[in-house]
């Protein structure tokens, strides 16, 4: 059986490798349940701090550049902001996931394997950027004008969605498909990943709505409203997911078994 880089190591071992969430564990001792709950709470706490750091990085990316760059504003020097925001979020994500380590290190931890894995991640990221770009064009973005803007939008959307996936799940398409199908999540990290990713997509989707309005505001220009929508969606997802998981933690323990 193909072993996925699987989160929630302890749970996994305790449940004797019951992979599928649909299969209910037959042994459900009180002791295990208690342990599980405390695990859950500490995990949720870590998740919350991690997400707060991510939100902080997004906010910082709007303020720090203005200290070094003259005439910096999100709307007027939008492309610069996009780059900076994307870099900030990437760095913070990488650092966070390497510190928190919610996922199992793979069995083969040789250097070549790590390098190969890293290269694979880079390729995946680039592919996701280009496919987002293609989707935007299919959605009606101009083909030739504003290529750079469209591409940077694709980059920032990839940063919000593909990057955390790569950090958490690695370059493993099967795991991605599992996480993003219904009832497929197996840990709170994956659950929060699902929420932030979907909210980023929904945010950028909603961001396209005000473009046809005739208010003639600077933020209605393609792709500013969409990038802002994606950012707001990402931040909202980050803020909501720990809370949502906390509130639903009773049901989630069942689901995630």
């Amino acid at each position: 059986m193909n072993v996925l880089p699987f989160p929630g190591r302890l749970l996994w071992k305790q449940l004797g490798g019951a992979f599928s969430p649909a299969v209910m564990p037959s042994v459900n001792l009180d002791q295990i349940a208690n342990q599980e709950n405390t695990m859950k709470d500490t995990d949720i706490k870590r998740l919350l701090y991690a997400h707060l750091l991510c939100i902080f990085s997004v906010i910082l990316s709007t303020f720090i550049p203005s200290l070094f760059l003259e005439n910096f504003s999100i709307l007027e020097t939008h492309l610069i902001w996009l780059c900076i925001c994307s870099v900030f979020v990437t760095v913070v994500n990488l650092v966070l996931y390497s510190v928190v380590k919610p996922n199992t290190p793979s069995k083969r931890s040789s250097l070549t394997h790590k390098v190969a894995r890293f290269l694979k991640c880079c390729i995946y990221f680039l592919v996701s950027c280009f496919s987002f770009h293609v989707i935007f064009v299919l959605y009606g973005a101009p083909l030739i004008e504003l290529v750079l803007e469209t591409f940077l939008f694709a980059v920032i959307l990839s940063t919000f969605t593909t990057m955390p996936c790569l950090c958490l799940l690695g370059p493993n398409i099967k795991a991605w498909l599992r996480v993003f199908s219904r009832n497929g999540v197996t840990s709170i990290w994956e659950n929060s990943l699902q929420i932030t990713t979907i909210s980023s997509f929904v945010g950028s989707w909603l961001g396209a709505l005000p473009i046809p309005l005739d208010w003639e505001r600077p933020w209605q220009v393609w792709p500013i409203s969409c990038t802002l929508g994606a950012t707001f969606g990402y931040v909202a997802g980050l803020a909501i997911s720990p809370l949502w998981i906390y509130w639903n933690r009773k049901q989630l323990t069942y689901k995630n078994n």
Binding site: S20, A22, L177, S181, R182
Partner: peptide
């Protein structure tokens, strides 16, 4: 389409 292609043949909990 993709979901039923990639996950369709597994015993899969999708509702």
């Amino acid at each position: 389409v993709y979901r039923s292609h990639f996950l369709g043949n597994k015993e899969d909990p999708q509702c």
